[in-house]
Write a protein that binds this DNA or RNA. Structure first.
Lengths: 170, 170
DNA sequence: GTGACTGCAAAGTCTTTGCACGCGG
DNA sequence: CCGCGTGCAAAGACTTTGCAGTCAC
């Protein structure tokens, strides 16, 4: 996927953990071992995830009492607040994605496989700006979801998932 | 609001209730008094609402045992399925809007007053189509939320609501 | 040291489900 | 009259909170 809408590569001066540490310091909060572990797991690979998926990845640490479910939720909220993660409601739960050193983008959402495909388009931001101007509206951000079926699922003849547990409604 | 992005007026041949009746018939379902009451309330005015707000409007009928909470949820799901309502997750709950005899549109979402302002733009659909083509993606629908502050709230100097109970996170 | 942070358990919020009775077609 | 639909109560999924002990600074 290298077309007009592909995302440019990431470049960051400071690691997510360092940036989070700075955020915490600025608020008189502490960089605890739990927060460190969670940030490391969250930024170990670029992917969309929800709290439950993250908890699964952390299950060993949870079993060893290194970190707990409420702390994961609490830390995710802080990472969102700090601008390191972006939280978005999808299918009745919150899904998170990296928002640090990562370009603004929007999503194609495949109803069959639940995959989120990221794409970038300057034109969308321009368009939002024009509409906002018309309504004298001050933009903070925008979010565009294009729902449908990805190429792979169409080739396999998969229909939009009818199993509700498989489906993340947009 | 009569600019380029205003929505054109509504025109429908069949009333929402009639259309719902047809939907039910086609599925071997029944048009019960409860379903009738709910459809009448839902389409009595054009507005966004969530289940809790609808339940409030129906509180008298609920008190009189004419309709119950589970039935409201069940019927909202059917109205969504029937294409009469559109369901969208907003701030941890589902918000519904009319989707029958109502033109495709997108939303400006004011973080201060939680209002949803509808607007229409052909350009957005065209843009989605172009991106989808690039990714060989079959579009079912799209949803664009522009989050920020509306003119009125800005004039009043209101900041984005810090009261979490007031805030519907997008 | 001291106060922010944690794990635990419990509660909250929104939504769904099992079941026996009731009513629409 | 058949069986879908209902109300009730209870459970479910996800997330948040109160509290007493613990640890970062």
């Amino acid at each position: 996927m290298v077309g007009r809408y592909a995302l440019r590569s990431v470049r960051v001066a400071v690691s997510p953990l360092e940036r989070f540490a700075e955020f915490l310091r600025s608020r008189g909060k502490r960089l605890t071992s739990q927060r460190r572990l969670i940030v490391e797991q969250v930024f170990s690979h670029h992917d969309h995830f929800d709290a439950e998926e993250l908890l699964e990845h952390l299950q060993e640490l949870i079993a060893r009492r290194r970190v707990s479910r409420p702390t994961v939720y609490r830390t995710l909220a802080e990472l969102d607040e700090a601008g390191l993660l972006k939280k978005m409601p999808l299918g009745g739960r919150n899904v998170y994605e990296h928002d640090y050193g990562y370009p603004q983008h929007d999503h194609l959402y495949c109803q069959s496989c639940n995959r989120l495909i990221e794409f970038h388009s300057e034109a969308i931001a321009r368009l939002c700006a024009r509409v906002a101007q018309e309504y004298d509206f001050e933009i903070v951000s925008h979010r565009l979801f294009v729902t449908g079926r990805c190429a792979e699922c169409r080739r396999q003849g998969l229909l939009p998932s009818s199993d509700p547990s498989e489906q993340r409604r947009c």
